[in-house]
């Protein structure tokens, strides 16, 4: 099968801006799903609101484009009610961690088998370039004309602390790593979080003078390094990439099956 088999071609070209990293993330995800030879019938994509969320319309999966920040809560209902389905939940940084922050940590705590992808472009793009909880301090945005004073979350640390059993980070530049990580995340039994640094040349890049899409991608290349690499050892200020957590922990739907077993036994007794 080719990656085109997994998209709804009639809705292309997609609505994202030229050079948007979200398109590359879609591309990587399609390659991951294709390489895993997954059956489209088993795939459900749930998304929230924002640029990122439009991804669910383009994939030929069962797709659920929901409300802002709540994609994981909807996905929890889909997954628990039909555990044989594979849930992929791409979210923007504001979607996942501002309005959706509570659902994010609780899905991680439950370790429900969902693959959460944080498409982190550090900005609210759809509404025109307001700062997000991942912008970090000292950044320009339409709601931060004097630059931001808010600190950013570290998605990897947050997800790890909340109990996600698979946590990884890649970038839109490092496509081969992204594909490999996404394959492992999808196959992982439990809640997996993959943060993928993305670029928004239209808003974030323009406001913060980071150049065009290619220059922003080069920035991702220059400011990140693989876990365990010499580059990271030499310069700990680089953002680490790779798989940070990969634990075998009881999964929520399986645990609930045991609840059902106990309840049914109790009834018979």
């Amino acid at each position: 099968m080719s990656v085109k088999e997994y998209i709804r071609e009639r809705y292309f070209p997609h609505m994202w801006c030229p050079g948007c990293g979200h398109g590359t993330i879609l591309n990587s995800l399609l390659h991951a799903v294709d390489q895993l030879q997954l059956d489209k019938k088993d795939l459900v994509m749930t998304s929230g609101i924002g640029c990122s969320a439009r991804i669910s319309g383009y994939v030929d999966f069962h797709s659920l484009h929901t409300i802002h920040g709540r994609a994981l809560a909807f996905a929890t209902g889909v997954k628990l009610s039909k555990p044989e389905l594979k849930l992929i939940v791409p979210m923007g940084d504001g979607d996942a961690l501002a309005i959706g922050g509570n659902h994010f940590i609780h899905a991680a705590r439950r370790n429900i088998d969902i693959t959460a992808i944080v498409m982190n472009n550090r900005i609210y793009g759809m509404t025109g370039g307001q700062f997000s909880p991942l912008s970090g301090a000292g950044k320009k945005a339409t709601t931060a004309p004097y630059s931001t004073i808010d600190s950013a979350f570290d998605v990897v640390k947050l997800a790890t602390a909340a109990g996600a059993s698979f946590v990884a980070r890649s970038t839109a530049y490092h496509v081969l790593e992204t594909i490999d990580i996404l394959k492992k995340a999808i196959n992982h039994k439990g809640f997996s979080v993959v943060e993928i640094l993305s670029q928004c040349p239209t808003h974030y890049g323009r406001k913060n003078k980071e150049g065009n899409a290619s220059q922003m991608l080069k920035f991702q290349k220059d400011t990140t390094a693989k876990i365990g690499s010499k580059a990271l050892e030499k310069n700990p200020l680089l953002i680490p990439r790779g798989i940070f957590v990969d634990n075998d922990v009881p999964e929520y739907c399986q645990a609930y099956d045991e609840v059902i077993e106990r309840a049914m036994k109790g009834r018979k007794a």
Binding site: K4, H14, G23, T24, L26, N27, S28, H31, A172, L217
Partner: peptide, 11 residues
């Protein structure tokens, strides 16, 4: 094939 993999538009 990095062009194919990096293309945001699957073009």
């Amino acid at each position: 094939k990095l062009c194919e993999l990096r293309c945001p538009d699957l073009a």
